[in-house]
Design a protein around this nucleic acid. Structure first.
Length: 433
RNA sequence: GCGGCUAUAGUUCAGUUGGUUAGAACGCCUGAUUGUGGUUCAGGAGGUCGAGGAUUCGAGUUCCUCUAGCCGCCCCA
């Protein structure tokens, strides 16, 4: 038998998983829209040149590149000099949603409002090694506000995400903020060279994971001398609030300043933030973002300020699964009622009944072929349908249906009208409120 | 990219120092029940033992290579 697994790091989503994903995505959309963000979608594939050199070296390596096609590919393969990876590819799968957004902004400057607030929930791809809660294809839920330097934007984004997390019943999250400017000062004041800035920040970011000693060791391993390393580490503990963060702290008092917060992406220029869960064993962040005033300018002449934030949907889902946080009434079955089929001749009666029930607002599935009733009941049980309408010869003759409650096992032969009323009482009134 | 563990039925797993026809549970199918599922009983189907090679009279079992999965590291959401 051939291998039937999806490609490595990719997943199939079965109906139950989709329901959970849709529930979370629904909450996210609802809150974002409540804050006045507009939906945006961009293509899965971008020109390779759009994506390269935006994420740092690591990012370029983790990008899925798409081979050139036809004559263009053959031409490269025929070349006698050394052919580089990027000569063979001209397209790539998007690596995040921020760079495509920057491209859209630069490309539609005239059509878009002066301040553009958008949300975007789409998959992105990274050729990374899969791990717990980490995949090669995964969804990002981004909100970004383009065009303003005001701190109001940061505040709005942080409140929106807080509201989402609250609505999803997360009670133990903490908002950590830092500022690229503060980090830059810490690095230079410690006497760490500019070329080692990113090394220093990557190590520092792990402070809460590996502790001060761990960071110190890593800094040394990366060739940063003792005095610089300890000065750098000490600067994390400074008491005073850096002036870059003073206003944000005043507006959202519950945020925690964390001078060890660095974040990997190189395009951030101002405030950076991260939402982390404080209980449980999961150490990673479930949302993160920051201000990137330079990125959009890379696509056009104008520098356009921007702040963005991304929710880690996969992590949120994973934790909600582990903590059993999905609401009980999350619909877990395909239909409210199953209509049976007695034989070939009565199939049209069953179809008609199903249609009538549907018109009355019920979710109805019809057993797809004539079969023994036992099998039809077994199937109803398997797909977790709470009611079955048996439409057999005698029911059709008397213009009735037999309605069975699968949970209690009770059943009753009723007129079609009564059956509809019975079922509507059960489902429709509560649903449409 | 580096290290460790694992790979046997649809699923979870057992399989003795290498020995005949590879087992269990659950699931699936059939029947007991020709108009009734979830319980019970009887029966049945389903395996190139991850792939390839080596050792051996003989390999699910030992060795090598590859592939995939899981757990760490690196990095990241």
């Amino acid at each position: 038998m051939s291998n039937t697994n999806p490609a490595r790091g990719m997943r199939d989503f079965l109906p139950d998983q989709i329901r959970k994903r849709n529930y979370v995505i629904g909450v996210i959309k609802e809150v974002y829209e409540k804050y006045g963000f507009e939906p945006l979608e961009t293509p899965s594939i971008e020109n390779l040149s759009t994506l390269t050199n935006k994420y740092g070296e690591e990012g370029d390596q983790l990008m899925y590149k798409i081979l050139k096609r036809g004559e263009k590919l053959k031409k490269q393969l025929r070349r006698e000099d050394e052919v580089k990876e990027d000569d063979l590819a001209d397209l790539a799968l998007r690596y995040d949603l921020t760079v495509p957004l920057a491209r859209v902004i630069a490309n539609n400057r005239n059509e878009l409002p002066r301040f553009f607030k958008r949300y975007q929930i789409q998959p992105v791809w990274r050729a990374d090694r899969p791990a717990r809660g980490r995949y090669r294809e995964f969804y990002q839920c981004d909100v970004d506000a383009i065009g303003s330097k005001s701190i109001v934007v940061e505040v709005e984004l942080i409140s929106a995400v807080s509201e989402i997390l609250n609505r999803l019943q997360f009670s133990d999250f903490e908002i950590r903020v830092n500022h690229r400017e503060s980090l830059r000062k810490m690095v230079s004041e410690a006497g760490i060279g500019e070329e080692q800035t990113s090394d220093a920040l990557v190590s520092l970011d792990k402070l809460d994971k590996i502790g001060a000693e761990g960071v110190y060791k890593e800094l040394s391993a990366r060739g940063i001398d003792q005095t610089a390393a300890s000065a750098f580490l000490d600067s994390v503990n400074q008491e005073s609030i850096p002036k870059e963060l003073a206003e944000l702290t005043r507006m959202i008092p519950q945020i925690k300043i964390d001078l060890s917060l660095a974040r990997g992406l190189s395009y951030y220029t101002g405030a950076i933030f991260e939402m982390v869960l404080t209980k449980g064993d999961f150490a990673g962040s479930i949302a993160g973002g920051g201000r990137y005033d330079g990125l959009i300018g890379m696509f056009g002449k104008e520098e356009i300020p921007a702040v963005g934030l991304s929710l880690g949907l996969e992590r949120i889902l994973m934790i909600m699964e582990e903590r059993d946080m999905f609401p009980d009434d999350l619909t877990t079955n395909a239909a409210d009622v199953l209509v049976t089929i007695w034989n070939e001749e009565t199939a049209s009666d069953s179809l008609k009944l199903a249609g009538e029930l549907r018109q009355n607002g019920l979710r109805v599935t019809i057993y797809p072929q004539p079969d023994k009733l036992g099998k039809q009941f077994k199937y109803a049980d398997q797909i977790d349908v709470p009611f079955v309408c048996v439409l057999g010869e005698s029911e059709i003759a008397e213009n009735t249906v037999t309605l069975k409650n699968m949970k209690t096992g009770d059943q009753e032969t009723l007129s079609v009208k009564e059956a509809i009323e019975r079922l509507s009482d059960h489902f429709v009134t509560t649903d449409s409120k």
